[in-house]
């Protein structure tokens, strides 16, 4: 694909984790030598392996442009998108590619993300209108400032890199975790939404924001600057404020 800027014959070693439950008793690394060019991505290296060296390697991918969220991988130990990580970052050293941490391995580089999807389904990830509006009344007004309050959190591509980065999720899979908290907050912070009360129990449960131990590695690995740690922090504050409010606001405890 990238003949042009390849110094002729240059190549790079890619080690890939293999595991086929029907034939391998445990995962192992398999090494491949693939052509190197400055603009080749790790995903393209995997595609080269699949098309030309070993068609039995399985991994997820589609868009190639860091937007569909399919190609999350551990690349030299760090959660990254394969399509937006380039071989030049490692060359002439080798690249070691594995499935995302903290998720069960289905096969090779494919992990089971049902836990993430199940959590997404639980948080009421849709507008629960603050004020109903019919279509002929047109759009809800929302100023650019109101938009800014949640926009960054709506940019989550569901790549689950932040879950692979989160030590707390590694210890306790019940933890709601960074990406889903960001999405929950995305709806709570939307001026059109009035569903905060419905989502409160999930957010403030022990497995909710309070499960977070403030490592912030999630935000570091997020490819879309969603900053899930920020969403968690804002809600810890909100959650704590709610708690104190019960004592100062007359009648507040009744809610």
């Amino acid at each position: 694909m990238a003949e042009g800027d390849r110094s002729p014959g240059a190549s790079i070693e890619v080690e890939v984790l293999r595991y086929r439950p029907e034939q391998d008793s445990e995962p192992f690394y398999q090494s491949f030598t693939v052509p190197y060019a400055e603009d080749l991505s790790v995903l393209q290296a995997l595609q080269h392996i699949k098309d030309d060296l070993d068609s039995t390697l399985s991994f997820r991918w589609s868009c190639r442009m860091a937007i569909c969220g399919s190609c999350g991988l551990m690349i030299n130990g760090i959660p990254k998108l394969g399509c937006r990580t380039f071989l030049r970052e490692y060359y002439p050293g080798r690249v070691r590619v594995g499935p995302l941490n903290h998720f069960p391995i289905e096969r090779d580089l494919v992990v089971d993300i049902e836990d993430f999807v199940g959590k997404l389904e639980k948080i009421h990830p849709y507008i629960i209108p603050r004020e109903p509006r019919t279509l002929d009344q047109g759009e809800y007004l929302q100023t650019p400032r109101q938009l800014q309050r949640y926009l960054q959190f709506s940019n989550c591509i569901n790549c689950t890199l932040c879950y692979a980065a989160c030590p707390q999720y590694g210890l306790d899979p019940a933890f709601l975790g960074p990406g889903i908290t960001a999405l929950l907050h995305r709806y709570n912070a939307d001026s059109r939404d009035g569903g905060q009360a419905k989502r409160a129990a999930i957010m403030h449960a022990e497995d909710g924001v309070w499960g977070c131990t403030a490592v912030s590695y999630c935000s570091e690995v997020c490819p879309k600057a969603v900053d899930p740690a920020n969403a968690i922090n804002q809600n810890k504050m909100a959650s704590a404020m709610d708690y104190f409010l019960r004592f100062v606001k007359p009648g507040g405890a009744r809610k």
Binding site: C63, I67, C68
Partner: peptide, 10 residues
């Protein structure tokens, strides 16, 4: 693929 991976995403 999971719905959010569909190519409308691009």
């Amino acid at each position: 693929v999971y719905p959010m991976r569909s190519h409308t995403v691009a």
